[in-house]
Amino acid sequence: MLLLVGVTVTGCTTSGVTSGSKPSAPSPPSQITTVPGGPTFTGPYAAVLADMYAKSRTTAEREALADGTITDAEQAEMVERLRKCVSGFGHVLVSYGKAGGSTFDLNPAQETDAANNEVSECEKSSGENTVGLVYSLVLRNPENIDLIPKIIACLKEHHLVGPHYSRSDYERGLPDFPDENRNIRVLRCNDDPLNRIADE
């Protein structure tokens, strides 16, 4: 039984299904945000960092987030915590993309709903929902710019939408094709319109 978790959506799906990438809402950059009793964050992801710090459960998460930068080593440590956690339930972390997106081989002896809940809990306890989220957001979009125009331009460049495709069209949902290769290209435009992930 295989569980696939999409790049831009955190959470579990039913076995054998990739969670779809949802439209990315623009987020105006924040410059300074202070967590009560915690650090002060600056830069385009200050508000996100403060929110993730406030939601963090463990010392490891807070230490990784405190300086406002998630290093490759801190990300790797998070992935290892996730791997160990799911293995404790008899599941296997098959793959974890550098910018998010994970594949799990679920314990066949476990009911799907229970297995999904276990993976979800591991994502929370490992820091995948905090450290992993910040890492992938910054990798994908370091300046926290509005990516929707870039996504639309990418979709048009690859002839996946018509010339008049607009922001309102995008906000209603991504195009869907019977051709799996075209759908993969749609998701690439949506998940990595700046070609940041491919370049890593």
Rank of each mutant, 00 (worst) to 15 (best):
R81T: 10
T69Y: 01
S56T: 05
Q75T: 12
P163D: 12
V79S: 02
E128K: 02
R172F: 13
P36M: 13
L106K: 02
T33N: 07
G68C: 07
L49F: 01
G173Q: 14
G97K: 09
S56Y: 00
I152R: 06
V5K: 05
N141F: 02
E61F: 00
R172S: 13
A47I: 00
I184N: 08
Y53E: 14
Q31I: 08
M52Q: 10
P149H: 02
I70L: 13
A114Y: 12
A46H: 05
K22E: 07
Y170H: 05
G20E: 10
S120A: 05
S24D: 08
N190V: 09
L155Q: 06
S126L: 01
E157Y: 10
G127D: 05
Y165W: 08
G90D: 15
R182E: 14
A198K: 04
E200P: 00
L160V: 15
T13F: 09
D51A: 08
I184S: 11
N195L: 04
A54E: 10
V94E: 10
P44V: 01
S126C: 06
V79H: 03
E123I: 01
G88S: 04
I70E: 03
C85W: 10
P142K: 11
L93H: 02
G132R: 00
R83A: 15
E111A: 03
G173C: 09
E121I: 09
E80R: 13
S95R: 13
F177T: 05
D176Q: 11
V7H: 02
V161Q: 08
T103W: 12
N116K: 07
P108A: 06
Y135H: 03
L147I: 03
Q31Y: 15
Y135C: 04
N144Y: 02
D67Y: 01
S56E: 07
K84L: 10
Y96W: 12
V131T: 14
T112K: 00
L65Y: 00
I197K: 05
T14C: 14
L160K: 09
N129Q: 11
T8S: 04
M78G: 13
V86Y: 03
D105F: 02
F177G: 12
G68P: 07
D176R: 15
A47W: 00
L93Y: 04
S30D: 06
I145W: 00
N129M: 05
P163W: 15
R182C: 11
T18L: 13
P175R: 06
G162R: 13
R57L: 10
R83Q: 10
V131D: 03
I152T: 09
Y45C: 08
S102F: 10
R57K: 06
R196Q: 11
G173K: 09
K156L: 12
S102I: 12
F177Y: 14
T58G: 03
P44I: 00
H158I: 02
S125W: 12
D51K: 00
T112R: 02
N141E: 02
H164P: 10
A198E: 12
F41W: 01
V86P: 11
R188H: 14
